[in-house]
Amino acid sequence: MIRKFASILSLGLLATVAHAAEGIDTAALFSASLTGLDGQPVAMERFRGRPLIVNFWARWCAPCREEIPELVRLDAAQGADGIEVIGVAIEEADKLEAVRDFAKTYNMSYPVFLAAKDGIPLMKALGNPQAGLPFTVYIGRDGKPTGSKMGVVRRADLEASAQALLR
């Protein structure tokens, strides 16, 4: 009975995630160049062809801090399956040191980038017209979005999305 409920719940989450894929322009992500924690520019094109969970966050965002441990857990559990978690900090380049310290404090084992002035337009292109945080986008190997979520991602959200990304 529990397994059946979990399957129904998972299918419901997948339906919600899949529906949310409308209006997402992943070309904006893959054409972006963001700043790595080493201060160097990184072309997001290098992540094309991988299943991605792209999470937009900020240090001052309490809900963002709440969800980071789940993203770290998923990265550790699904990394071998090829799913790549990417953190995009909505921070200016002069906050690099603070973001680097934050990422270390929260054990963010996945790649973290600073979006600076490109963060808000990038979130809007990815289907977040209000540019609210936290915001997460799920992108398949084919570069097409499988969904997005505004607000805190929970374990169930991430597990359902990971299943969809690995199909």
Rank of each mutant, 00 (worst) to 15 (best):
D25G: 03
T26A: 06
A27L: 13
S33M: 02
L34T: 04
T35A: 01
T35Y: 01
T35P: 00
D38T: 10
Q40L: 09
P41E: 10
P41V: 04
P41K: 04
V42W: 12
A43W: 12
A43R: 13
A43D: 15
A43G: 11
M44H: 08
E45L: 06
E45R: 14
R46C: 04
R46V: 09
F47Y: 15
R48P: 04
R48D: 11
R50W: 07
R50L: 11
L52H: 07
V54D: 09
V54R: 03
N55M: 11
N55L: 09
N55E: 10
F56K: 08
W57D: 02
A58P: 03
A58T: 07
R59D: 09
R59G: 02
R59T: 08
C61R: 10
P63R: 05
P63Y: 14
R65Y: 05
R65M: 05
E66S: 10
I68N: 01
P69C: 09
P69I: 04
E70I: 04
L71Y: 12
R73P: 00
L74D: 00
A76F: 01
A77I: 05
Q78D: 12
Q78M: 06
Q78G: 00
G79I: 11
G79Y: 09
A80E: 15
A80I: 04
A80F: 05
G82W: 09
G82K: 10
G82M: 07
V85C: 07
I86D: 00
I86M: 05
I86T: 00
I86S: 00
V88F: 10
V88D: 01
V88E: 02
A89S: 15
A89I: 09
I90N: 01
I90K: 06
E91T: 01
E92S: 06
A93P: 00
D94I: 00
D94R: 12
D94N: 14
K95M: 14
A98Y: 08
V99H: 03
V99Q: 03
R100Y: 08
R100K: 14
R100D: 09
F102I: 02
F102P: 00
A103V: 10
A103H: 08
A103F: 13
T105Q: 15
Y106Q: 11
Y106M: 15
N107K: 14
M108F: 08
M108G: 00
P111C: 14
P111W: 14
P111T: 02
V112T: 02
F113N: 01
F113Y: 14
L114S: 05
A115D: 07
A115I: 04
K117C: 00
K117Q: 13
D118E: 13
D118G: 11
P121T: 08
P121F: 03
M123E: 11
K124L: 13
L126K: 05
P129R: 07
Q130Y: 15
Q130W: 12
Q130L: 13
Q130C: 03
G132L: 11
P134Q: 12
P134F: 15
T136F: 06
T136R: 08
G140Y: 04
D142K: 08
D142S: 13
G143E: 07
G143V: 04
G143H: 06
G143W: 06
G143P: 05
K144V: 09
P145V: 12
S148F: 01
S148K: 15
K149Y: 09
K149L: 14
K149P: 03
M150N: 06
R155Y: 02
R155I: 02
